[in-house]
Simulated scan of single mutants.
Amino acid sequence: MNDTPITVRRAAAEGEEAQRLMAELSDALLTMTGSSGRASFDAEQMQQPGCCFVLAYDPAGKAVGCGAFRPLEQGIAEVKRVYARRTTRGVGSAVLRYLEAEAARLGYRQIWLETRLVNLTAVRFYLAHGYREIAAYGDYIGKADAVCLGKTLGHLLEG
């Protein structure tokens, strides 16, 4: 697998490519954690102000990853449905960079997310990208199998 240029752009979460990638993510999560994660994401919500859904494309124009954020509370966006096929390196990082930059552009000061502790690949990925463990929030309060992570976006607005 070589590092190849990845293009990330906004897309419709209800689109065929988006739905296919999110189904792959749901299948992988179900196998790994026992939950597909489908219940905590509403594709139609992505059309609302303050939301963002993106697809990542390889150099051949094939969709190879996705991700989203939605408003959580004032100044805080919540990352959802980040997924990257393992066929191309750098997809997850490209998706996350785009989401962070877009969230900062829209005025969010922080970006939070939840993943399962058993999903060590995801936990390590987010920690490597500057996320730190935060107190559980929302539906994740009291869930021992969940880990909540957050990152301050202020530096993305400078320069």
Rank of each mutant, 00 (worst) to 15 (best):
A136Q: 15
V147D: 01
P59M: 07
R124C: 05
L29F: 05
R81V: 06
E24I: 04
A63G: 04
G107W: 03
L117V: 12
Y131I: 01
N2P: 14
V54M: 05
G15F: 03
R86G: 07
D145F: 08
A103S: 08
G138H: 11
L21M: 10
C66T: 10
A128H: 10
T7M: 13
K80E: 04
I111W: 00
E16M: 12
E158G: 13
Y83R: 05
L25Q: 11
A104T: 06
Y131V: 01
T88S: 10
V147R: 00
V79I: 15
G67F: 08
S26K: 10
E158W: 13
G65T: 03
Y131S: 00
G92P: 01
L113T: 02
R81W: 08
R9H: 13
Y57M: 10
R38C: 07
S35M: 13
D42V: 05
E158R: 15
A28N: 08
Y126R: 06
L96K: 00
R70V: 15
R116W: 12
G75N: 08
L117Q: 14
L157N: 15
R105K: 14
L55G: 03
G138C: 06
T7V: 13
V91G: 02
E114Y: 10
R9M: 12
Q48V: 05
E17Y: 06
K62G: 09
V82P: 03
Q19E: 11
A63D: 02
L156N: 06
K143L: 09
R124I: 04
G75F: 02
R124H: 08
A56H: 09
L25S: 03
V123Y: 05
K143M: 05
R116Q: 12
D58S: 07
R86A: 13
A11P: 07
G92M: 00
